[in-house]
């Protein structure tokens, strides 16, 4: 019964990102930097993505992860960070958006 902390190294996106990096994979990190209204994941939440499109963690309840992964692949290519915004006010709401009615800003950057 030596399990105590809630820091789960196996599930934690930032530990996964570090491990992927050590394996020599290209890694992008997406972070929720702002939320308005009812957002499914709090500010500071991470989704990490490799160049094959594998991902771990979450920035929403699964609503916008697909779009973030696509953007992350571009970020990995260009090396330039991007700010993404999702929400019902967004014109993309019909394609990808937050059904809960909230709005989030996601910052996507390359690791290294």
């Amino acid at each position: 019964m030596e399990t105590a902390t809630t820091l789960d190294e196996i599930q934690d996106p930032l530990f996964i990102a570090e491990n992927w990096m050590k394996e020599g994979r290209d890694v992008a990190i997406a972070t929720v930097v702002e939320t308005w209204g009812s957002a499914p994941r709090p500010t500071g939440s991470h989704l990490v993505i490799d160049s094959e499109g594998n991902f771990q963690g979450s920035v929403s309840g699964g609503c916008v992860e697909g779009a973030v992964v696509t953007e992350a692949l571009d970020v990995l290519e260009s090396g330039k960070p991007r700010m993404l915004e999702f929400g019902v006010a967004d014109e993309t709401a019909w394609r990808v958006g937050l059904s809960c009615g909230g709005r989030i800003k996601v910052y996507v950057e390359r690791l290294g």
């Binding site: 902390t5 820091l7 190294e9 930032l14 530990f15 990102a17 570090e18 990096m21 990190i29 950057e109 390359r110 690791l111 290294g112």
Partner: peptide
Amino acid sequence: MDPNLLKKLNAERLARR
């Protein structure tokens, strides 16, 4: 994100700081 910072951050988190 700077890879060294990620390593340092994770080390701090593991050490409960």
